Computed example of a mutant assay.
Amino acid sequence: MGGQDDAEREFDLRWAEGAVHKEPSARARMLAARWKENPPAPQPFRADPDPVGGRRSSWVSTVIVLGAVAAVIVLLGWAGFRAPF
């Protein structure tokens, strides 16, 4: 903020946050207008009716990660063994 020092800026923030009337955001106004005419259907808390795809076991993920790390170690060891000194 151009020429304002910290004390002036702090005063401005306190003044703005202490406002009696706070206007809702554009998105809040849009949703309120839309829901007034067509209210949304009630949803259960954290609803996930149809999960996407199967979930792998944690062991499968662990084996994949450890296999990739082992492959990188072997590849680096092979490259180091073949490198001229």
Rank of each mutant, 00 (worst) to 15 (best):
A71W: 01
K36P: 01
D5Q: 10
E8C: 03
S57A: 03
V65I: 12
P40K: 07
V72K: 01
G18Q: 02
A83G: 01
G2F: 11
P49T: 00
Q43I: 13
D5C: 06
A7D: 06
V72R: 01
I64A: 09
A16Q: 12
W59S: 14
G77R: 01
L75I: 06
V52T: 13
V69I: 15
G67F: 03
F85H: 09
Q43G: 11
D5K: 07
R14N: 11
E17P: 00
A33L: 13
F81Q: 08
V65K: 09
V60M: 13
G18L: 05
G2M: 10
A32G: 03
E8P: 02
F85W: 11
V63M: 12
G54T: 07
V69P: 03
G54E: 04
H21M: 08
S61E: 12
E37C: 01
A16I: 09
D5E: 09
K36L: 01
P39C: 06
G3W: 06
R14W: 12
I64H: 05
L66V: 13
R29Y: 00
A26M: 15
A79R: 14
E23V: 08
G2L: 14
D6T: 11
R34A: 07
V52K: 12
G3C: 09
G18A: 10
V72P: 00
A68M: 07
R29Q: 11
R34N: 02
P42E: 02
P39T: 00
A19Q: 14
D48C: 13
P40C: 08
V69R: 04
G2H: 10
A83Q: 07
P42S: 03
H21P: 00
K36R: 02
W78V: 14
N38Y: 05
A7L: 10
A79P: 02
S58V: 15
G18T: 01
F85M: 07
K22D: 10
R56N: 06
P51N: 03
L31D: 00
V63A: 14
R27T: 08
D12L: 10
A71Y: 06
P49Q: 02
